[in-house]
Amino acid sequence: MLRPLSEDVSRIAFARNLPELKTAFTLGLNRLGFISYNISVNRSSPSEFMEKPTLTTWTTKELDTYVNDKWSGRDPLMMHLELNKTPLLWHQKNWDTSDHQEYYDYVRFQGITGGLTLPLPALDGKSSAITLLSIDKIPQCPHVIDAVTILSSVAVARMAAFKEGQFSEYDIRRFKLLSDLQVEILNWMAKGKTNNEISSIVGRSERAIAYHVSEILAKLDVTSRAQAAAFYAAMGFSD
């Protein structure tokens, strides 16, 4: 196990962008027996872990369902994070109690057999954690906690090393705020084009392009063209 773990650590540590990091991180966690995860860094409350993950394998639809069904208020994993700073390695049968019957029914319906919720280092007043799910019938051994801690720590450090890491995949919905023209302008921004060049390409005045660029930054909640371009690339939209 040590050799694959060291290889996964190296892949994560040398990832050049967020998509590459996600691929390496996901592969490493898959090797440990987990099929999905949410990792959230420096969130204001445990409820944001699942609602606004920094990196996740959940789809936007799955995240929306979690939010709309108000799971954050009754999810025992989130309750654990709010009350404890210790890892929680669990198996499906752990939730077969009167207090957690709803969650037990939920994980059984989803085919989930176990998981791990692991607090991570965070800034003062903030919280960081990763939650992982498994469909293996055999319960995970406690040593998996150390392996996940290592992979997660390297992933968090790597995300901090490039600007894409500050964006949440869940923020992809921000693109719905952009007009078709603004999406086109953002595409050219991501390719390094200036306002003057974009003006010639799309047939609008440079003043109009400047206005739309400022709108793009505001709608994406970023402060620079570079951040907007990095967001666009991290979401997998660039060529």
Rank of each mutant, 00 (worst) to 15 (best):
V222G: 01
D69W: 06
T149I: 02
N94R: 08
K22W: 03
E215G: 03
G73P: 06
F237V: 11
V9F: 09
K93H: 14
L89F: 10
Q166F: 00
I198N: 05
W58N: 05
T97D: 00
D146T: 08
W58Y: 11
L186C: 08
D124P: 15
L5I: 10
G73S: 09
E51H: 12
T97A: 01
V222D: 00
L18M: 13
A234T: 08
D146L: 04
K22V: 05
S45I: 11
H143L: 05
P46L: 08
Q101D: 14
L55F: 03
I135E: 08
L133H: 12
E197Y: 09
D221F: 04
W58L: 10
R31Y: 10
S40L: 01
V67D: 10
S98K: 02
V202R: 01
A24K: 05
S128K: 06
S168N: 09
I172D: 04
D221Q: 11
K85H: 11
G125Y: 10
A129Y: 11
E197T: 07
G203T: 07
A226F: 13
S40M: 01
E48R: 15
F162C: 09
Q101K: 04
F162G: 09
N195F: 05
N42I: 00
R174P: 01
A226H: 12
E62Q: 15
L118Q: 02
G114K: 00
Q110L: 15
S199N: 01
L55G: 03
I12N: 02
L29C: 01
K126N: 06
N68H: 12
L27W: 09
Y232P: 02
E206H: 12
I12V: 04
A228K: 02
S199E: 03
R204S: 05
